[in-house]
Nucleic acid binder design. Structure first.
Lengths: 87, 87
DNA sequence: ATGTAGACTGTGGTCGACG
DNA sequence: ACGTCGACCACAGTCTACA
């Protein structure tokens, strides 16, 4: 799994925890709604500025999003490895 | 001070601490040397993928670079404020 | 409220060359 | 070893529209 996919999963998780719509997130972070959609599905790689403005709206510190993205990415790799060696 | 400037200062600090040249950093992170130069002077905004590959070469966790960038950015703002009110 | 698609603009990132 | 310049290309990010 690559970084942008992990990033998308993480921000989607935070967004849903705050029961916020993509539209609200887009408006608050001054980005386009369709772009948020692309980000959450790992179709685009955000710049660090995008990271900061999104994290601001979600009220999470940017470094936590990065940390969780890395963790998400690696735990996914482990799951694959596990599945492959399970039987 | 904006994010990309703080980012540039931080990665330059890490690079010099490891007494590594821009060229080595560029080679290791599979980026162009001139682009590293632009980044360190805050002329370009890196994507999170660029953040990850650079942090990998510098052997710093990506979230630490982000955390320090934010801190650098805010402490700079405080210094300006201090200077303005000092006399 | 979200995914997708297409057309578009700006800028992230490359590359060669010079001081 | 680094800053800079100019040309270039790929993609971040916008916008309209439809399901």
């Amino acid at each position: 799994m690559d970084i942008e996919q992990a990033f998308g999963i993480v921000i989607k998780k935070y967004r849903l925890e705050r029961s916020m719509s993509q539209e609200k997130l887009a408006f608050g972070s001054d980005l386009d709604r369709t772009f948020i959609s692309l980000l959450e599905r790992g179709k685009r790689k955000p710049t660090i500025n995008t990271l900061f403005s999104i994290s601001n709206v979600l009220e999470v510190k940017p470094y936590k999003i990065v940390k969780n993205s890395k963790r998400c990415r690696e735990s996914f790799a482990e799951k694959i490895k596990f599945k492959l060696t399970a039987y």
